[in-house]
Amino acid sequence: MPEHPVIAALVAGDRDAFYAQEIEARREAGMPPFGRLAAILVTAGNRAVAEAYAREVARAAPPAEKIQVLGPAEAPLSVIRGRYRYRLLVKAAREAHLQAYLRVWLGNVPKARGDTRLGVDIDPYSFL
């Protein structure tokens, strides 16, 4: 199986080749810096409650050209300090008005109840 060009550049220690391959892959995928991302994190003390609210949030997402909502899915670190975590990823074209979209969308989502929390991270550095 041929090695992926980014992996080959890493193995070879070729920083310039790595950068060229990575930046082109990001351009093709519309990922930062060529696109925008937002992470929405739903947490609760009960797994079923966190998942149900995350699904409710996802269902409320209005359709939008140039904006895609992915998830919800269990976060990579699915439990921290007894709180269950579900994530949604919002992927937008660079020219899309991501904050305005989120404001309208999340303004129409029923408020979280009990110990359920919803957080938003624009252009996150990590998805853990």
Rank of each mutant, 00 (worst) to 15 (best):
A38P: 02
V49M: 09
K91F: 01
L10I: 08
P33I: 00
R55V: 09
A50I: 03
K91A: 13
A112Y: 04
R85C: 11
V69N: 04
I23N: 11
A48E: 11
A12C: 04
R47H: 15
G30D: 01
G30A: 03
Y86E: 04
N46Y: 02
V120N: 11
L88F: 07
A112C: 04
V104C: 12
R87E: 12
A75H: 02
T116L: 11
R36S: 07
R87W: 05
V42R: 04
R85A: 03
E22R: 01
H97F: 09
L77N: 08
L77F: 15
G107L: 05
A9M: 04
E74W: 03
R36D: 02
V90A: 11
P110H: 04
V42E: 09
Y101V: 05
Q68P: 00
A60M: 13
V90K: 04
E24F: 09
G35Y: 07
I80F: 10
L70T: 05
I23T: 12
R55P: 01
A17C: 05
E28T: 08
G35K: 11
P32Y: 02
Y86C: 09
D115G: 15
R94G: 10
A52S: 15
V57E: 08
A25G: 05
G35M: 04
R87L: 14
P62G: 07
R94Y: 11
Q99L: 12
H4Q: 15
H97V: 03
E28N: 12
V69S: 03
D121F: 11
A52P: 04
A39Q: 15
A9P: 00
R27N: 02
R81S: 15
I122L: 15
E28Q: 15
V11W: 08
L89G: 01
F18W: 15
V109R: 01
G114C: 02
Y19R: 13
A93Y: 03
F34A: 07
A38D: 06
Q68F: 09
S126K: 11
G30Y: 00
A54I: 06
K66C: 06
E22N: 12
G71K: 15
R26Q: 08
R94D: 07
A61L: 03
R103D: 12
P33V: 00
R83A: 13
A20N: 08
L128E: 10
